[in-house]
């Protein structure tokens, strides 16, 4: 009888243990903006939803519009209730580095950075020079005025990589093309991006690009000006402004979420940077279906560049580019 009871208890413990393993991974993601911003935050939000649709058992809580100053308190509260806390934005890096060591049982993730933040922190870094490069090739081939405008946000993190990748692509496809570059000093200065877009258009640029969610301010000026085109950074821009957007790159953050969960399943807890590139399907690229807007030769050249990036990771040495 005693053996039977012991066996029963063991079986019960096993069932409980299995149930615990089968529990969904709870992830809280801290966003600097809203998850429907058609840019930075929405990309991550869609990435999580994609990971869930791929069969990953995730209990997901978005925490939107968190100010940088409120980040430490927010992270403190989330740490009590979630398995993984992901800080989506370089403005939260300091808070994450500060709070994560206080909660060693939680897994943390911070992006974008390629630095390592500690034993229980993963970082992630979009290799944005790759979509920038393809966009540069398209812009170089599309400009008739040989003048292209780059609406910059800040010269740091993935934005800096994007701009340098873009210049690489532009130089490669059209060495005669000049570029103009201005920075707003922010990621969310929609009006400032509009000012820059207007400046470029008045200066004769006929193709414009811009990383960050603020770029929609410049895109609206492009849409209101005849003969000026836009090479987009998110698919939403292609959907909303199909008459001027020739193509759009997009982040697919499911690569980060899937990479994160797979690494945890392998027993890793952090101290590693998860890259986001074409090679690991971290980016997608969409061309305009309007053949008049995007000629076949331009599309083929961009497709060839894309294929090259998919085949091999880390092929672009963006650091060699010196900006004006």
């Amino acid at each position: 009888m005693k053996k039977f009871i012991a066996l029963l208890i063991c079986a019960l413990m096993l069932v409980i243990a299995c149930t615990a393993v089968a529990e969904a991974t709870s992830i809280a993601i801290v966003y600097p903006d809203t998850v429907d911003d058609k840019g930075w935050c929405q990309s991550m939000h869609m990435g999580v939803e994609k990971a869930i649709s791929m069969g990953y058992d995730i209990e997901y809580t978005p925490v939107e519009s968190v100010a940088t100053a409120d980040a430490p308190n927010t992270l403190d509260q989330l740490a009590e209730n979630y398995d993984i806390i992901l800080c989506h934005g370089a403005m939260f890096n300091t808070a994450c580095q500060e709070i994560a060591p206080e909660y060693p049982d939680q897994i943390w993730a911070a992006g974008t950075t390629d630095q390592l933040f500690g034993e229980n922190v993963f970082t992630y870094m979009p290799m944005s020079e790759e979509p920038g490069y393809i966009n540069g090739i398209i812009a170089g081939m599309m400009t008739k005025a040989n003048k292209v405008g780059i609406v910059g946000s800040t010269d740091g993190a993935d934005s800096a990589r994007y701009v340098r990748g873009f210049v690489m692509g532009l130089n490669e496809s059209n060495p005669d093309a000049e570029y103009m570059l201005s920075w707003t000093g922010s990621f969310s200065d929609t009006v400032g991006a509009g000012d820059i877009g207007n400046t470029f258009i008045q200066a004769g640029c006929d193709v414009l690009v811009g990383p960050a969610q603020q770029a929609v301010g410049a895109l609206r000026n492009v849409a209101a000006t005849e003969g000026v085109l836009w090479v987009g950074q998110t698919t939403a821009q292609l959907i909303d402004f199909p008459e001027v957007t020739v193509a759009a790159a997009d982040y697919d953050y499911s690569a980060v979420i899937v990479g994160l969960i797979d690494r945890i399943a392998e027993g890793k807890t952090g101290n590693e940077c998860i890259p986001l590139n074409y090679n690991n399907n971290g980016f997608v690229y969409t061309f305009s279906e309007n053949a008049e807007l995007l000629p076949e030769d331009v599309k083929n050249a961009a497709q060839a560049a894309w294929d090259k990036l998919v085949a091999t990771a880390n092929t672009l040495d963006y650091k060699t580019i010196e900006l004006k």
């Binding site: 903006d33 911003d37 519009s65 969310s188 200065d189 929609t190 009006v191 509009g194 929609v216 301010g217 609206r220």
Partner: peptide, 8 residues
């Protein structure tokens, strides 16, 4: 001008 609304 911007023809859009954002919090910022």
């Amino acid at each position: 001008y911007a023809k859009i609304f954002t919090d910022t």
